[in-house]
Design a protein around this nucleic acid. Structure first.
Lengths: 246, 246
DNA sequence: CGTCAATATTTGTTCGGACATTATGAACTA
DNA sequence: TAGTTCATAATGTCCGAACAAATATTGACG
């Protein structure tokens, strides 16, 4: 027998039924109402109980399966995945952990150039090499210790951002407010020796390595949103990547 | 008007129709038959032309959308994504690039221990801390230059692997042959200073940094498959990660 | 008592249909 | 001419149904 989880479906809501269901099921798993390994109510029963069609229920379940929360086996049934992997990919880093742990993060603008020409950045965004880009160089601090140097390039159609905004708010915050949302990002993560300037800005001891990341981000239509060239103190950052292989 | 791509559906095949379709559409995009920005044949037309139902066609398209190859916009239509991101996530690295470029890769076993106890590895796999694990330490070479040191731990139920296999074949090859397939992996990528032993094994100059990665891999049911603790020469490796944000 | 075959259960695939929602462009009106 | 309205076309949601395939259970039989 499987546990019946309480679900409320609002048919007058504009949010799709399968999504309402998926959300509530997700919550049941993440809050521990359903434990890893627990059998999951079968599709037919769920559909009958909630007065939904089987395709709708299947779609909701498929969403959770895609996120690794559920495991389906034909002829057997559906169970809650043994290892509940928290889906913290995104553009995550140790940074968020620092924030959660209470370390005060801050950013400091080192340079703004609205007409920077950088062939590498331009090409990565699919633009002509001599396209002037909005260039932004910042230093990120974790409390009192420097943590990272962030260089970012934005395409021309996003170049009309307020200086004051740039100085006070996070880059992704600003983009979000403009309705620009990076949906897919291609990142390359590596390590190298720091330059002397980087050593100075990050307060590195001699021999300390640097963790580097370059990122190309695109919106849902594949239009370039940002090119970033970042380097991090090795003892402040690590990249947390969840990879699915199908 | 949109280009009609040739598609052949085999109804006698055991592979699902939607998957057959998805495969062939993917190929058309990746081979450049369909260019970024091109309009995509609409669902109804595709369904009529191939004599498939609309849900089947939709499912195939949904697969491509999920991989970022297509963009759907309600009321407008479907188009090929502007930036075709090659789906090289997986467990990829510069390694494969080296192989493609003709550098001869090889692996050398440094140590095998069938009853290694490692609390960190065991805990990461959800096992008791004193569980004896199969431990494997290898050095990977790119031609004549050392490139990485790979330490791996396998859970007890996979510990009965042949020594000869371990020495001659890749780890993932062996697992695949046993029907074990890692489906989800959680990786943490960082950098640090090498130990003296690492410096020796990798032939590092003083001050050279180290790129590190730890990985926990699980199969489709969430059972642990492998724990890995790797370190790479910074000039031989970089991690290539594609991230989707929904 | 052990083995094998029939049966039930559960998920997987495919279809057809209906209506909703959104964007584009054309026709119409002020 | 400028603005609005409306038809059209495309994707989005939801339903009901049927059959296929894989697995577990049960029961019959030796």
């Amino acid at each position: 027998m499987s546990k019946t989880i309480p679900v409320v479906i609002d048919r007058t809501s504009p949010v799709p039924l399968y999504h309402q269901l998926a959300e509530q099921l997700t919550e049941a798993i993440e809050t521990g109402v359903l434990q890893p390994g627990d059998p999951f109510e079968n599709e037919l029963a769920l559909a009958a109980r909630l007065d939904l069609s089987r395709p709708t229920v299947r779609r909701a379940i498929a969403e959770l399966v895609g996120r690794g929360l559920l495991v389906r086996r034909r002829g057997v049934g559906t169970t809650v995945a043994n290892q509940v992997i928290h889906r913290r990919d995104e553009l995550s880093s140790l940074w968020e952990d620092l924030v959660r742990r209470g370390t005060k993060p801050s950013s400091e603008i080192l340079e703004i150039d609205r007409e920077r020409v950088n062939p590498v950045a331009a090409e990565a965004m699919g633009l002509a090499e001599d396209t002037p880009l909005l260039y932004l160089k910042r230093r990120r601090m974790a409390g009192d210790t420097p943590a990272a140097i962030l260089e970012n390039y934005l395409p021309p159609h996003l170049a009309d951002l307020d200086d004051s905004d740039l100085r006070t708010r996070g880059l992704y915050d600003i983009l979000k407010a403009r309705g620009v949302r990076p949906v897919i990002a291609h990142q390359v993560i590596g390590a190298r020796r720091p330059t002397s300037e980087e050593r100075r800005l990050l307060g590195l001891a001699s021999g300390d390595p640097l963790l580097t990341m370059t990122r190309r981000a695109y919106d849902s239509e594949g239009a370039p949103v940002e090119y970033g060239d970042h380097c991090y103190r090795y003892d402040q950052y690590a990249f947390d990547v969840t990879v699915y292989e199908r």
